[in-house]
Amino acid sequence: MKIVVASGKGGTGKSTVAANLAYSLIELQSVTLVDCDVEVPNLHLFFNPEPAIKEVFTIIPKIDSDLCTLCGDCGRFCRYGALTVLKDRVLVFEKMCHACGGCMIVCPEKAISECNYAVGRVEDSNPLPGLRLISGFLKEGEVLAPRVIKDAKAAAEGDGLIIIDSSPGIACPVIEAMDEADFCILVTESTPFGLHDLDLAVGVTKSLGLKAGIIINRSDGSDEDVRNYCRKMDLPVLLTIPFSREIASVQNRGDLISEKLPGWKEQFAGVYKECLELCGVDE
């Protein structure tokens, strides 16, 4: 079972939901929590892990200047502008390379090979009994977030229950995080921003054919617009988390409400049960 936690808008509480959901289930079964918000991963802040670290590489072209005749074919082929052939050498712009391998294929002299280029790291740990935490970190200044997400998810492959924390937005990192998930929890807040961006995120889950349910976070009780939207789109509201200074304070300090405040562990366990039911899975 793979559940991905996402949202269009940032800061709605994806990490909070993912971390609490995982924590609420570990007494019942093993859980693997994967932080795929690799630009700004935060799940490790809840758990103080001592991780094993593995670097994430992409591949970039390496030019053998003895073989290269400066014919220019690679630079003309590359649609990303990652290669510029000048009169006396070939420039490689690592950050623009998508690692498609095209330059190697088109080079008539076989002068191009590939070498590793580090774009991030994956941290793997067991911070609590029953909990495995895998966090992807994009290197500062790099852009290939999907590459890091792929490695983080690959590390979890084969585990039973996997909960994935996605980045906000609706672009390629989100698609990568949602890819092959069984269910998506979309976290929103009851503001015009929250609703506007929720609708965009629903567009993504629909285009992927991914089943989804909603959690309303920081609710002050005026949730009618979001609830009407959910009814209209036939999306179940799985949970409503109210705004209170007490909850905000627990979270801001990096603690979990399912651990520190009564009742929440049961609520999140209930959310998981509903996810299973919506996916048609028996416990």
Binding site: N42, G141, N252
Partner: peptide, 19 residues
């Protein structure tokens, strides 16, 4: 914002901007 994640993310975005 004054949260552990806010501070952690501030640190990362500042490092990128330094470039």
């Amino acid at each position: 914002e004054p949260s552990n994640s806010g501070l952690s993310d501030l640190t990362r975005v500042v490092e990128v901007c330094r470039g």
